[in-house]
Design a protein around this nucleic acid. Sequence first.
DNA 1: GACAATTGTTACTTTAAAAGTTGCAAATAG
DNA 2: CTATTTGCAACTTTTAAAGTAACAATTGTC
Lengths: 144, 144
Amino acid sequence: MAPANTQFAVAVHIMAVLGCHARADSEPVTSALLAQSINTSASFVRRTLSLLAKANLVHTTRGPSGSCSLARPAQEITMLDIYRAVNAPKVFSLHTYPPQEKCSVSCRIKYAMTGLLDQAQESMEESLSKRTLSTLIRELEDSE
Amino acid sequence: MAPANTQFAVAVHIMAVLGCHARADSEPVTSALLAQSINTSASFVRRTLSLLAKANLVHTTRGPSGSCSLARPAQEITMLDIYRAVNAPKVFSLHTYPPQEKCSVSCRIKYAMTGLLDQAQESMEESLSKRTLSTLIRELEDSE
DNA sequence: GACAATTGTTACTTTAAAAGTTGCAAATAG
DNA sequence: CTATTTGCAACTTTTAAAGTAACAATTGTC
């Protein structure tokens, strides 16, 4: 596959696995284990994983017995936190054609649309901010 | 340029030009004129234009003196109407890796995430539904 | 009816972003 | 020292959107 922007979906998947294994006595979670769950390569997982680590959502340790775990409780992690961590692209892009001087619409449309697009983006982010990782994990478990 | 999904932005630009020229006694708007304003080819414009026509947002006529105009007043056209007309992609995509049978998270994550993503999509669409084309045009004019 | 000007549509090429891969550096437990 | 893990950077592949071109369909004008 290619351009479809599944970064966020992959990141949520990673976090869900970490959240489930945080319970107790679980075996340590490595990028190889995550890769199995997501059905992709460990290297690919690590790229996303390191973004999550930089955003202080997960804690990683290297070396033998190195592993990953949630940096804080699942109920304190929102979907917006995850979205921001993987710096997913904005919902919409403006077209970048140079404005045509002669046309007043052409010259001002970019400015006028910015407000519109920012508002749509904000609505979407607010929706994400209302769901926590723990809620998602509960839903996963309830569907057993 | 390439993958960035500016379809929606282009469609709004088209609609804004049509809205501004709807005022009175304006010269008829052709795809060539729109192309000038957007700084792209007439052919590219027509592709988006015909989507807008199919969604009954614009009215087009062929032949000499053929042109385009809004199919209804700008205050009765929302940004969501335009978004839907150009069938822009969803905000998020799920990753399509086949689930790993052994892993319960892997098997159920897709289902659990659908609700989350749908909700985010809906929030964004609701935001778009609250803005009409006439509002955008007014903003364009106010920035003179 | 012939002609010209416009939209509609399809097929094609180009481009850029994301997916996916590889290799190795950095860290660390034993 | 060695083995095992994450971190990171460079590279190739894939895919969907951007952009182009050509022509069919429509229709006003003469």
